[in-house]
Write a protein that binds this DNA or RNA. Structure first.
Lengths: 222, 222
DNA sequence: CCCTTGCTCGTACGCTGTACGGTGCAGCGT
DNA sequence: ACGCTGCACCGTACAGCGTACGAGCAAGGG
C-alpha cells in the first residue's frame, strides 16, 4: 500500500477531487478555452504529465469537473405549492448553479458523455413529476423539455444584455433589408431585450410550465 | 481592374462564398473538430495562408459557413391553419436544416457573434407571432423560447438513440445509488427514450406551443 | 543494503491558428 | 516592347495544444 507517498515534492496531497476542483475554478474564472493541461498543472504547482496519472486524458478531467460542480448542488423542494411552484423553484436553482459555472453547458454541448453525478441536479424534478402523477415515460419527456430549455438558455443567452449591447444589436438588426426580414426589422426594438437574462428565462419557464400543467390536468382527467 | 486574375495557379476561381461552402461541407461531413485551416485549404487545393486573404481568421470563416447554411433555408408558411400549426411547421423546418448541418448549433454555442443571414431562418416565426396579434416584445420573448428549445434539442439530443444505446444508458442509470437518485432510478426504463429524437422533440414543441397558445388567448381577451 | 514499486515529469511528436515576408503573374503607363 | 506596380498566393516560423514515452527518484519490503 502506497499511502501518502505522493507528497514527495512537498506537495500537500493532490487527488482526483482536488484536481477536478482546480479545473472547475479555472473554467469559472477564465472560460473553457483557457483551460489547458499545461496551465492547470502550473496552477497546481505540478508537472503537466502528472495530471495523466489521475485522469486518462483531458476529457475525463473535464467530466470530473462537471461532477465536482454537480456535487455542490443542493436543493430542498419547497413544502407548500403545487407541481408548478415546485418545478419553478427547482429550475431556478439549477439555473443559479449554471450561472456560477458558465462552462457547464458548453461542456455538455461538446461531449455527449455524461457521468452519474450530473444526475444529482435532475433527480428532484423527476421526483416532482412522478409525485404529481405523471407516468414515468411522460415524466421523462416533460423533464427533458425543461432540461433542454434551462441548458439552452445559459448557452444562448446567459445574462442580461447591457443597454449598450442592446443598442448595438438593435442597430445591427436595422441594417437588414426590410423586404427580406420584415418581422425582424419590425420588432427590432423588442428583440434585444429577449436575447438573454432572467426576465426572458422566467418568461420561457412559465410558457413551458403552462404546457406541463396542461398535460397534468389531462392526465388527471380534466 | 484585376478581374479574374486569381486564376493563375489553374484554380478555377475561389471566392468567399466557395470557401464558406467548402467549410460547411467539411463541417457536415467530419464535424466541428475536424475542420482546420490546413485541412480546408488542402481540400480546396490551395495553400493554407491563402484563406487568410479572404477571411480575417477562422472565426470569420466559420461565421460565413453559418451564413451559407442559412442562405439555403427556404420556408413558405402553410396557408391554412392557425398560429399553432404554422409555428409547428416552421420549427420543424428549422430542425431539419439543423439536422442537415449538425455543427450549426455547436457554432452558435461557441461564438456569441451572429451574423445577419442567420436571421433569415427566424423571420417567419416572428412574422407569425406578430400576425397573431402578439405585441413585438411579447412576440420576441415567445420566439426566443422556441429558438432556445430548437437549438438546445439539436445540441443535447439530436437523434434517436439506438436500442443498444438506450440499453447501455439504462444500465448506467441503474448503477446509481437508489437512495440518492430515487426518481432517476425509478424512471430508468423511460429516461433513455426521452434523451433525443423526433418524438421527444415534437413532445417538447407541443408543450411550448401549448404555453404560447395560452398567452395568445390571454392577449385576445380570453 | 538492495531491489522493486509507483509517482513524477522532461522531452518530443504531430497538430493547431496565424504573423511575416518572399515570389511571381497580370495589367498598365510609357 | 519594356519596366513598374499591385496583388494573390503561400512557404516558413512561432507559440501553444494534447499526450505518448521513458527516465528519475523516493519509499517500502526483503
Amino acid at each position: 500500500m502506497s499511502g501518502m507517498s505522493k507528497a514527495n515534492r512537498a506537495r500537500v496531497a493532490l487527488d482526483r477531487d482536488e484536481i477536478a476542483r482546480a479545473a472547475l475554478a479555472m473554467l469559472d474564472e477564465e472560460g473553457i478555452d483557457a483551460l489547458s493541461m499545461r496551465r492547470l498543472a502550473e496552477r497546481l504547482g505540478v508537472g503537466t504529465m502528472t495530471l495523466y496519472g489521475y485522469f486518462r486524458g483531458k476529457q475525463e478531467l473535464l467530466d470530473a469537473a462537471v461532477g465536482a460542480a454537480a456535487a455542490d448542488f443542493t436543493f430542498t423542494p419547497p413544502e407548500e405549492g403545487g407541481l408548478r411552484e415546485r418545478l419553478r423553484a427547482h429550475q431556478r436553482a439549477v439555473r443559479e448553479v449554471l450561472a456560477r459555472h458558465p462552462s457547464l453547458p458548453q461542456l455538455r454541448a461538446r461531449q455527449a458523455l455524461v457521468q452519474p453525478a450530473a444526475f444529482r441536479m435532475s433527480d428532484p424534478a423527476m421526483q416532482m413529476l412522478l409525485d404529481a402523477g405523471f407516468p414515468p415515460d411522460e415524466a421523462a419527456r416533460a423533464f427533458r423539455v425543461l432540461f433542454v430549455y434551462v441548458l439552452g438558455s445559459m448557452l444562448f443567452g446567459p445574462r442580461e444584455l447591457t443597454a449598450d449591447e442592446q443598442r448595438s444589436i438593435k442597430a445591427g438588426l436595422l441594417l437588414l433589408p426590410e423586404d427580406e426580414f420584415p418581422a425582424i426589422t419590425a420588432a427590432a426594438d423588442a428583440l434585444p431585450a429577449s436575447m438573454g437574462g432572467d426576465v426572458q428565462f422566467d418568461y420561457g419557464l412559465e410558457v413551458i410550465l403552462d404546457g406541463i400543467e396542461a398535460r397534468r390536468r389531462q392526465l388527471a382527467g380534466e
